[in-house]
Design a protein around this nucleic acid. Structure first.
Lengths: 221, 221
DNA sequence: AGTTAAATACCAACCGGTTGGTATGTATGT
DNA sequence: ACATACATACCAACCGGTTGGTATTTAACT
């Protein structure tokens, strides 16, 4: 959970070693997003990564101490890539907090485009696969997933207060939203059809509507 | 989807090549359940499997044409192992169909014991990891997962009719139940705490209670 | 029941290719 | 001159899979 490995340090992070334009590091990270989504972490070799990124192995091990370190960096990179995208998404506009979380669910539906590897969650895939062997990667994935869930908490907290909902909490609802998404991705993969994601998200939307006492709008799952 | 590879055959299946006592095949399959849960498919080598099962590599490739074939067999084995357990579980007893599906959710909560690799779904893990590289394994996992989901459909269908629920179907609800479970396992792995599963299942239970118009009993998520 | 032959189940040693990782060299900017 | 950012060449370990062989079970025939 500690994102700050250096033990005693004050002041702003030096933030060296971050992506400089089209550096090898970024090329490798971008290649890793694609390859690991398609084949998984273990099945993607360092050579695969280098070939896809158009760099040599020397560049790889210059930028990443090991393959495991690449995995950790990838989980963080994924979070840094997606966070601005969600921050700029239109689901924040509604004045009603419940409308915002419902718009979030609808927004996640809109993201379901292209092949299944194209929209599934890299952090979820990585986390599941590296759980036993690379705890550091799993932890980095956890930070990314729970970090994204945390961005939903304010809206849920407001909605809970405004609608007077009892028996649950904003963090729990935010995490459940992510759980349904992750499960939906697995069902889509297992069934080979991306409609499974839309189906699960429709159920999630109806759950929230029922929980907050709003008439189901027009769910069709 | 075709479980019957022999093209033109009538009469009952010969069913050779099934587990005879503590044969190598079963030893390997049992070892595979444990190892693949812990490390994943790609990270588990054939040698690992053989060592854990106490057999040699010759025995492995005598029983399974390839590592991929082991994966397919494992998905089927997993389904054959769990199906009788669920069939004999007490959640079938209630007279009311809604009570039965709610009892199923509670039963899944009870299964959450021990370490996370001990209760997570082998088929879900396998499916996610092998999606891109081994379509045959992914399909076998899909059959197992959707096959289990199908066992819930009759109860959901009855409940829908009895309670007059509209806007969804029994297959959709059955699949959503599995989606929430799979997502819960991922969140548990990502967060390193099994309570995440209980939390997600509490939300699922409340969704079903709200959807079927029953007073939430005492959910505590 | 006893003999035999074939099929089955398993074992130990081995193979070529790939793995993550390293050692060393080089071009460039300061 | 020196550190950074890469490239090239290489390695021991390990990978999935194959080999040729043996012990055991099954089936067929007498």
């Amino acid at each position: 959970m500690n994102r700050n490995p250096s033990p005693s340090r004050s002041g702003p992070e030096p933030e060296r070693k971050r992506a400089r334009r089209g550096s090898a590091r970024t090329l490798i990270l971008d290649a890793a997003v694609q390859l690991i989504r398609e084949k998984g972490f273990a099945a993607t070799s360092v050579d695969d990564l280098c070939k896809a990124a158009g760099v040599t192995k020397g560049a790889f091990f210059h930028n990443f101490e090991s393959k495991e370190a690449l995995g950790v960096a990838l989980a963080e990179y994924w979070g840094e890539m997606t966070a601005p995208m969600f921050a700029a998404a239109p689901y924040h506009q509604p004045a009603d907090p419940l409308d915002r979380v419902l718009a979030y669910v609808d927004f996640r539906k809109e993201l379901v485009q292209g092949g299944i590897p194209d929209f599934s969650c890299v952090a979820g895939t990585l986390s599941q696969e590296t759980y036993g062997e690379y705890p550091a990667i799993r932890e980095a994935c956890g930070n990314t997933i729970f970090g994204h869930a945390a961005t939903l908490e304010p809206d849920f907290a407001e909605a809970i207060e405004e609608y007077g909902v009892t028996g649950t909490t904003a963090p729990s609802l935010a995490r459940h939203t992510q759980a349904v998404l992750q499960g939906a991705f697995i069902m889509a993969k297992a069934g080979g059809e991306r409609e499974a994601v839309l189906d699960a998200l429709s159920h999630l939307r109806r759950y929230l509507e029922l929980l907050f006492g709003r008439e189901p709008s027009h769910g069709h799952a």
